[in-house]
Design a protein around this nucleic acid. Structure first.
Lengths: 229, 229
DNA sequence: TTAATAGTGTCTGTCAGACACTATGTG
DNA sequence: CACATAGTGTCTGACAGACACTATTAA
């Protein structure tokens, strides 16, 4: 169809999340162009038809260009499309969310982004606050029944550390026995051969890492399930 | 940003589903323009920036224009956006899915759409088969933990009828007691004052209807939860 | 030995499935 | 009454939470 209808503007926005000081933090980037130039917004940008295979690839590129990150867990969130969200007119944002371990953030040390505790963010340009809240709500909801939070962990981690992350996301404490049963059933982590040497005055914990196959397959499975959120 | 990047094409596609002869059926419409003119595809179209408030409103309009339906249950599914799905180049489809009772389909009697049993559809133009399968998988998955299938029911219905619908969607039989407990807990239906007079040689069943508040609030809640699928 | 955290054994209440039973209509 | 479907009572096995117990390290 070569229709006369004016086409809406299409952008990709990414809610990039990490866990820092026991709280979820989201990345915001300084916007360079109008509208809202000079404001801190969710990292986003246009699709580059010549280099991006699909929306996910565009989101990956945006994360690389704006936050210097290479391969965080990334998934489509929801599309926000209406007449009011952008002053330029009818516009579409294919929103994604990404999880990244704090260690990755610190390693990349990208100064172009700033990290804000999500629960303290009260306003953002465009409808980015709504997008952010939708992403956070999705992550917390998935924490109830999936292994999503493992993508916030460093390369290896103990089950106690993982449990603390779940508890911080959910805002409530979990029973150790039940938690370990659940994680085992999900079958997404495996013991990491050599844990760090223990230097603590107590029994050292077994270290775990994400199972290779789980990394991809789980992401796929969760995507197919769709958003239970 | 007034970027030099060529903008992708944006369309809205809708997977419209009903239950007929005990099987999920999807609506396909005869496509009038190139590419794929003369092919049966999912009902879809461009956003009309002047009349559509948002993507959902555009989907509502498309259903009205292409299938003569006024207010089926409608929800955003997922956005399909890549370089290969449309011969015109990089394109975006904000896909939605809709559920409608068979009675509504027959009442509108729109000849421009054809209904096909979803499990017998082997091919569709563009990536519409993938969109269809994603929608069907989402509906079946939501059937496991939500009251979504009530939107396939006529104005009033019995719990036995509702249970048969769940069983047809899931492809397995359910225990009567457990099913009734679940539906009661979901709190989405209420007894309909005057059931049809019974003319059958057995105890007549209580008729139910969707609770007014549940209709909206549930849809909202499910949307916020996101896609557990 | 104490202290601290890791990890396991096991009891128990809850709840979903199984299934038998009662209820209510027609002929 | 028989028969068919609606609707309920209740048992039981599985399982998640509670929680106490053992294990392992350093000081």
């Amino acid at each position: 169809m070569s229709d006369p209808y004016p086409q809406p503007i299409v952008t990709i926005d990414v809610v990039l999340l990490t866990l820092k000081d026991g709280e979820l933090h989201a990345a915001v980037a300084l916007r360079e162009r109008e509208p809202q130039a000079g404001q801190w917004t969710l990292p986003g940008g246009f699709v580059h038809a010549d280099e991006d295979q699909d929306a996910l690839a565009a989101a990956v590129r945006i994360l690389r260009e704006k936050a210097g990150l290479e391969s965080p867990y990334l998934e489509q969130l929801q599309t926000f499309a209406n007449r009011h969200r952008d002053s330029r007119g009818w516009s579409v944002s294919i929103a994604h969310y990404a999880l990244v371990p704090l260690a990755e953030v610190e390693r990349s040390g990208d100064a172009r982004v700033k990290w804000l505790a999500v629960d303290s963010i009260r306003t953002l340009p465009f409808d980015h606050l709504e997008i952010l809240r939708t992403a956070v709500s999705r992550v917390r909801s998935k924490t109830l029944y999936s292994s999503l939070p493992v993508h916030l962990m460093p390369k290896t981690f103990t089950l106690s550390e993982l449990q603390r992350v779940y508890e911080q996301l959910l805002g409530s404490s979990l029973d150790k026995r039940s938690f370990r049963r659940r994680i085992e059933e999900l079958d997404v982590v495996e013991p990491a051969p050599a844990g760090r040497a223990a230097g603590q005055a107590h029994r050292p914990a077994q270290h775990y890492r994400i199972k290779r196959r789980a990394g991809r397959e789980l992401a796929m499975a969760e995507r197919n399930l769709g958003i239970r959120d």
